[in-house]
């Protein structure tokens, strides 16, 4: 019986069939151009790159239109029409940071006040350095020393026994320092839920802009469809604005839905 000549295992054949990269494709669909390319990345894995271009029409002066038809030259001589991804990139989204100068001035004033009273005497609490204190070396001074010594002794007895392991994250929580794991200040963050699917960042900004300045906002979107998942987090600059936002938005009707707003709860793992 003639044995069929077996070239290789099926696994190799699969490799052979799709070994080469599929050719790049360009699809133009209702005003958008989709360019799909396949590449090998650093780890020799195939990756698919989809770029979306918006096709727009503009009315421009004749001279400008003529310049659009100029041939490329120099280092760009061999570039195809359209932006070359080597030299032109779209940066990540950024927002203009609108400053409220009055607030900032106030903050600066506070700082100045602090620096003014930087000198505080340990002995008499006056506004001078301890070294210059007129009560230095008197009974007030020695009393203070004794008090300190006894306080230090008390602290030593209360301290936890050495040798017991405390994980780093617990150490932090005992101190009651920054709170959140990421060290972000979540005190002025709120969660808005029951948003409609068609909600966008612009809508959200529009909604909260009037209430107060926000430092950050996050609108949860579905990974595949890009539609809103129904909730968003907003970090306000000031806690009072956040409180006002909850007051206003909780029960507020928007897009035929009743919103609910509450304080953002810290993640608990």
């Amino acid at each position: 019986m003639p044995a069929p000549d077996i070239k290789s295992s099926w696994a190799d054949e699969v490799e052979l069939d799709y070994g080469g990269l599929p050719p790049p494709t360009e699809v133009i669909e209702n005003g958008f151009k989709y360019v799909t390319e396949y590449k090998y990345n650093k780890d020799d894995k195939k990756t698919k790159v989809v770029r979306t271009y918006k096709i727009t029409k503009e009315v421009v002066p004749k001279t400008v239109a003529k310049r659009r038809t100029w041939a490329k030259f120099g280092e760009s001589k061999n570039d195809k029409p359209g932006p070359n991804s080597q030299t032109t990139m779209v940066a990540e989204e950024i927002f203009m940071q609108i400053l409220n100068t009055k607030e900032e001035e106030k903050a600066n004033d506070n700082l100045l006040d602090l620096t003014k009273n930087i000198a505080k005497c340990r002995i008499c609490n006056g506004e001078h350095w301890s070294v210059n204190c007129p009560y230095k070396g008197t009974s007030m001074d020695t009393n203070l020393m004794e008090k300190k010594a006894s306080a230090a002794a008390a602290a030593a007895t209360e301290a936890p026994k050495p040798g017991k392991y405390v994980p780093p994250f617990l150490k932090d929580s005992q101190k009651g320092g920054m709170g959140g794991i990421r060290g972000r200040d979540d005190t002025a963050a709120i969660r808005i839920s029951n948003l409609s699917e068609s909600m966008t960042e612009q809508d959200l900004e529009e909604l909260i802009k009037r209430i107060g300045q926000h430092t950050k906002m996050y609108l949860a979107r579905d990974k595949n469809t890009g539609l809103c998942k129904g909730f968003a987090y907003v970090h306000f600059r000031q806690r009072k604005d956040a409180a006002a936002a909850i007051e206003i938005l909780n029960g507020h009707g928007y897009d035929h839905l009743i919103l609910s707003a509450e304080w953002s709860k810290p993640q608990n793992n």
Binding site: S76, D79, T88
Partner: peptide
């Protein structure tokens, strides 16, 4: 007209770009 953006740097080649889509016209 603002349709072209010229840039030069401490390397030796000035560049020219289309300002509306960032396409490089040449060096």
């Amino acid at each position: 007209e603002g349709d072209l953006l010229f840039s030069c740097s401490k390397d030796q080649k000035p560049n020219v770009w289309y300002s509306n889509n960032g396409e490089r016209l040449g060096t």
